[in-house]
Amino acid sequence: NITNLCPFDEVFNATRFASVYAWNRKRISNCVADYSVLYNLAPFFTFKCYGVSPTKLNDLCFTNVYADSFVIRGDEVRQIAPGQTGNIADYNYKLPDDFTGCVIAWNSNKLDSKVSGNYNYLYRLFRKSNLKPFERDISTEIYQAGNKPCNGVAGFNCYFPLRSYSFRPTYGVGHQPYRVVVLSFELLHAPATVCGPKKST
């Protein structure tokens, strides 16, 4: 009989979030998941669920729940959905087409922007091929755009693959930082360890 609440607040209220290319994953298990708490945590810009209804979450049980978190800019949030393409979905964080879970995003301009520009958040701009779903690539190998090998040196047709967002508070919403948490629900042929409040007794 599990009584402890799932530590969603640790994920959502973390002081620092990860850069999207090096997104963070927390496995959540053996706890009571009260998803209604999430609705009250922040004024969400996005709370979209796929393959599951957000209002039914509190009635369900899962084997595992994974919470992935990272920062992107406002106009990239739409890429965090099944079947999307674009720089983020292709080279940084890719959801599977049959994704079961929820994408939660909110504006973090007050936390993640600086007047002089916050350069701490990076994204991958160049990659030889698209990522597979939930693949994480943290390599910093020089990207070869031409025929000549780069031998690890940046220059003509040889690019450092990561680029930094420079978040400034005066930017338009599309270029402001957004914190994203992706909850993916895993149903294996194994005992369910993460249940809503109704199912945990």
Rank of each mutant, 00 (worst) to 15 (best):
R73D: 01
F185T: 07
N1W: 08
Y93Q: 00
S116W: 08
N13I: 05
K148P: 05
K48T: 09
G146P: 01
G155Y: 04
N107T: 03
V37S: 15
F8K: 04
S113C: 03
A89C: 06
S113T: 04
E186M: 08
P177K: 01
R179M: 00
Y143S: 02
S129Y: 10
G86K: 02
V11T: 06
K132D: 10
Y143H: 07
R16L: 11
C49V: 04
G174Y: 06
V153Y: 12
L60A: 11
Y123E: 04
K199F: 14
Y21A: 04
Q84K: 12
V115K: 14
K94D: 01
I80V: 10
N147F: 06
K114R: 13
D75S: 11
L162R: 04
P161F: 04
R73F: 00
C6D: 06
N120W: 09
Y93W: 01
Y159P: 01
Y39L: 15
P161A: 06
N64D: 11
L122W: 08
Y50F: 11
K128F: 08
F45T: 15
R136I: 06
L125I: 10
S164P: 13
R124H: 00
I104Y: 14
N87D: 06
Q144D: 07
S19I: 02
V37Y: 13
C150M: 01
S29W: 09
A22K: 11
L188F: 12
R124Y: 01
F167Y: 05
N151F: 11
I88C: 03
G51W: 05
C49D: 00
T201F: 15
D68L: 04
A22M: 11
V103M: 05
A14I: 06
D98S: 11
K48C: 06
N24D: 14
S184K: 10
A89R: 03
T201S: 14
G86Q: 02
H189V: 11
T193D: 14
F45V: 15
Y21K: 01
A190V: 12
V71A: 05
D98E: 11
Y123F: 15
K94R: 08
K114I: 08
S113R: 02
I138T: 15
K199Y: 15
K48P: 00
P96R: 05
V71S: 02
G174M: 06
F47S: 09
L41Y: 15
S113F: 01
V65W: 06
R136V: 06
N120A: 13
G174A: 07
E135M: 07
W106C: 04
P197S: 15
I28D: 01
A190N: 13
N109D: 04
N92P: 02
Y178W: 11
T15K: 13
L5A: 14
K198H: 14
Y178N: 09
K26Q: 12
V37E: 10
L187E: 11
L38T: 06
T201H: 14
Y39V: 13
C31S: 06
Y143T: 02
P191V: 11
Y50C: 02
C49G: 02
R78F: 07
L5K: 14
Y35G: 09
V153S: 15
P54M: 15
L122I: 10
F99R: 02
S19K: 03
F156Y: 07
K56F: 08
A154G: 09
D68P: 02
A42L: 13
R78T: 11
C102Y: 03
R25I: 01
W106I: 06
Y119I: 07
T15F: 07
E141Y: 08
L183Q: 01
I72N: 01
C6Y: 06
S108T: 13
S184Q: 11
N1H: 12
V194P: 12
N13Q: 10
V181S: 03
S164L: 03
R163A: 15
R124W: 01
K132Q: 13
Y66S: 08
A105K: 05
L111V: 14
A154S: 13
G74I: 01
Y178V: 10
V20K: 00
E186S: 12
V37A: 14
L57K: 08
D137Y: 04
D9C: 07
P149I: 07
E135R: 05
T201P: 14
S139P: 01
G155T: 07
R163Q: 15
G146S: 06
V20P: 07
N118I: 05
C195P: 08
E76Q: 10
L38E: 04
P191W: 09
N40Q: 12
S164R: 10
A105G: 06
A14E: 09
T201C: 10
N147I: 06
G74P: 01
K198N: 15
S129R: 13
K48D: 08
N87R: 15
G51D: 06
A89V: 06
V182F: 01
L111Y: 11
S166E: 00
N157A: 02
T15L: 10
K110H: 12
N92D: 00
V65T: 09
Q79S: 05
T140Y: 10
Y50G: 00
W106Y: 08
A81I: 04
I104D: 00
H175Y: 15
K48M: 08
R168V: 01
K26R: 15
G74F: 03
N1V: 10
P43K: 13
P197G: 14
G117S: 04
D90Q: 13
A192S: 14
A145F: 03
T3E: 12
L125N: 04
V20S: 04
N1T: 12
T201M: 14
D98N: 15
A22D: 12
F126Q: 03
G117N: 04
F160P: 10
Q84T: 12
F99S: 01
V103P: 00
N4A: 13
P7D: 15
L41A: 14
S69L: 05
Y159T: 00
S69F: 06
P197Q: 15
F160I: 11
V180G: 01
L122H: 10
N24V: 09
C195W: 07
F167I: 00
Q176N: 03
N40P: 10
N40L: 08
A42T: 10
P133M: 04
Y159L: 00
Y91W: 07
L188K: 15
V32N: 09
Q79H: 05
N130F: 09
F45E: 15
L60T: 11
N118V: 04
R27F: 10
S53F: 09
P191S: 13
K132L: 12
P7W: 08
L5N: 13
I138N: 11
K94V: 03
D90G: 08
R27M: 11
D59I: 09
T3D: 11
G196K: 11
A105P: 01
Y171H: 03
S166H: 08
A192E: 13
P177T: 01
F167H: 01
P96A: 08
A22C: 09
Q84V: 11
S108F: 01
T55W: 12
F45H: 15
D59Y: 12
S116T: 13
F70N: 01
F44I: 14
R124F: 00
K128H: 14
C31A: 06
C102R: 04
H175C: 02
L95I: 13
V32Q: 11
Y159E: 00
V11C: 05
I142F: 06
A18V: 09
D68F: 04
D75T: 07
A190I: 11
A154R: 15
K94A: 07
N24W: 05
H189G: 14
N118R: 04
R25G: 02
C31F: 07
R179Q: 00
S19H: 04
N40R: 14
F44L: 14
L162K: 03
N109V: 07
T15Y: 09
F160Y: 14
N87A: 14
E186D: 14
K110W: 07
K128E: 11
L60N: 10
S36G: 11
F160S: 11
C102V: 05
L125Q: 11
L57F: 08
I2Y: 14
P82N: 03
C31K: 06
T46G: 09
I72Q: 01
F167K: 00
Y171M: 05
F167L: 01
N130T: 15
V77Y: 04
Y121C: 05
D59T: 13
V37I: 13
P133F: 06
L131I: 13
A145T: 05
T100G: 06
V77D: 01
Y123Q: 10
L41E: 10
V37M: 14
F185I: 09
K199H: 14
L183R: 01
N4F: 08
V194T: 11
S166A: 15
K110T: 10
S53C: 07
N13R: 10
P197I: 15
N64H: 15
Y121F: 09
D90V: 05
A190P: 13
E76W: 03
G74L: 02
T201G: 14
I138S: 10
H175S: 02
R78Q: 12
C195D: 07
A14C: 08
L41M: 14
S108I: 02
